[in-house]
Design a protein around this nucleic acid. Structure first.
Lengths: 113, 113
DNA sequence: ATATTATATCAGTATATAATGATATAATGA
DNA sequence: TCATTATATCATTATATACTGATATAATAT
């Protein structure tokens, strides 16, 4: 096994995963599984603030996970690719099996009572 | 669409994705695609420091993405599930298609020259 | 024209976490 | 025993980023 440190592609892949790596963004993606939604609808569906949703949507769009389309004063967002849903489904399944070990993901062991 | 904010499961799912959302951890996972490795081998394969690798391995284990087995003074790590590889493959593919838009994933638009 | 609605952006704060260097632990070998 | 090797942990620092509240922009409606 030869030595290669972190090439560009790993940075990109990490950024892609980062798009999924936040509960607020996941709730947005989850809402969008039902189809295209305007920002206000996403705000209602998730319970997040408008500002927060807008920031997360920018992130998701920059990550390539969603696409947006303007119609008048509305911006409609949707999942960009079937594989985004596939990733959500796959991790849902995976979680069902390994959830036992995912309580904590810090470098410190779970030291609760 | 009714209102539900962020249930436990979204937190867990986010943590799972977080395991993948770092270039150093991805390089470790990538190394492990070839099969079980001891920590020192991972250090060599990735070029990361021993301490750093050890911290990331703890994270990956806590996230349920890898499992470890002790043999004498060696700890052997391996991917915990075929679906971990599946997720890596799926995002590889997805990246190939949408990479154009993943240059940046900050809330600020890419404002380069 | 003015008000309202939909969305985006900004500045500031708080928190999370990646990396480092040092040290601890524990197994093996001389 | 003592040295070496393999790994884990600790404390610290620096950076990234999630969130908030305020404001800006722009489209529509009255």
């Amino acid at each position: 096994m030869l030595i290669t440190s972190k090439p560009e592609s790993l940075e990109l892949q990490a950024k892609l995963f980062r798009g999924f790596a936040d509960p607020s963004r996941l709730s947005i993606l989850e809402a969008l599984r039902g189809g295209e939604l305007a920002v206000t609808e996403i705000v209602q569906a998730t319970g997040l603030t408008q500002s927060n949703v807008s920031n997360h949507l920018s992130c998701l769009r920059d990550c390539g996970l969603v696409t947006s389309e303007q119609q008048g004063r509305f911006s409609y967002y949707q999942l960009s690719d079937q594989r985004v849903e596939d990733l959500l489904s796959l991790t849902d399944e995976l979680l069902a099996d390994v959830a036992k070990g995912v309580y904590e993901c810090t470098r410190y062991e779970a030291k609760e009572a």
